[in-house]
Design a protein around this nucleic acid. Sequence first.
DNA 1: CACACAATCGGACCGAAGTCCGTTTAGTAC
DNA 2: GTACTAAACGGACTTCGGTCCGATTGTGTG
Lengths: 212, 212
Amino acid sequence: MSNGFELPVIAEEPGPRADASRNRARILEAAARLFAERGPDCVSMDCIAEAAGVGKGTVFRRFGSRAALAQAVLSESESEFQETIIRGAAPLGPGAPPCERLIAFGEGVLDHLDSHAALIAAAELGGARFSSAPYGVYRAHVALLLAEADPGCDAEALAEMLLATLTADLFIHMRALREIPLERLKAGWRELVSRVLAEQPAGIAEAAGASA
Amino acid sequence: MSNGFELPVIAEEPGPRADASRNRARILEAAARLFAERGPDCVSMDCIAEAAGVGKGTVFRRFGSRAALAQAVLSESESEFQETIIRGAAPLGPGAPPCERLIAFGEGVLDHLDSHAALIAAAELGGARFSSAPYGVYRAHVALLLAEADPGCDAEALAEMLLATLTADLFIHMRALREIPLERLKAGWRELVSRVLAEQPAGIAEAAGASA
DNA sequence: CACACAATCGGACCGAAGTCCGTTTAGTAC
DNA sequence: GTACTAAACGGACTTCGGTCCGATTGTGTG
């Protein structure tokens, strides 16, 4: 590989080729613009490829699928939100009691959905939701808060169930089809979380569990 | 339309043509068989049409979409379950207190998912879940039980949120990907419902709601 | 600068859902 | 039995997500 006189080659990361990263940026830009202009449902992948000035194969090689492209378009606002959760001010960030943080978290997600519902729905298509990076972060965050607030509960399962109430599909159904205003959804979330984390009269689940 | 001597034509319901209903039955039979044999994800609509001995156009004219066909295949076991909920024995049917009925309902849905997850997932594709007949029944049922157990709550919103924890997508994710056993999912549901319907220390949601 | 090679490109291609429309047929009236 | 019509039929067609592979090009080397 090298003789004694050259600089040692330390796992030289090749780095992406110039045209590759340029095309990646072009595609993201075109996708973001078209999604915003016409709505994600009215933009095909061919269309994005053409607008970006690349072949369709390139779009799929870079992003793998339509859902993944939508996730990539969202990733900026997404990391911003995650940053606020992890290092931001209370009650969203650390400092507030877990119940309040959980409430603030759900309200934050609902706000996020309110601005990008269609795009987030596209990013969650076909089970992509569960394998996405943000979902992993959310799951860990909610489970941690639950465990902190009530060490006796099944935080893993409850976290996943609580997150199920914050999907884009349900949000769109509630807002558009059933015409429930955003504020009522937030109130519903507060109600749900408050009840889940209220002090439990001992042994309720066990007593009712007889129906199994 | 008629002279005075003929029998009056009283909004004569035409009824379906013989070939139409025969084809409908054939398609349902073929779809049920193929879905069961190969799994819903490995059966195309062309394939079902061929197996039923009809053209693809006929399949779509009868059922409208893949999701709707899956719903039709499920409808028998579905109505059975609904019958049990409405007129069956307690705690699933009437007679038990609402909290226990709600727990039994969720456990019943989870059992249903355990036997038909893939097919139910196919039936819920693309927002079809919310517009399906069963979802309407479930929503009304859960909202009624919630209102009965706690007249002060937002039963509509809570019902929709609780149902969100019983989707096929989440079930498949929890069972297959995260390897959570059925019994733990049921325990999670019991825990969730018990907490939501436990006696509320007054004013929790309002106190916490300051984070909005 | 010429070369080599690996990474990238791009568009032809594929399978599947859903639509369209010319053709066929069940049911009815005579 | 014949004629008529509304309904149903069926398969060609369109669109779209995703794959494949031969052509192209960026980049490091001598």
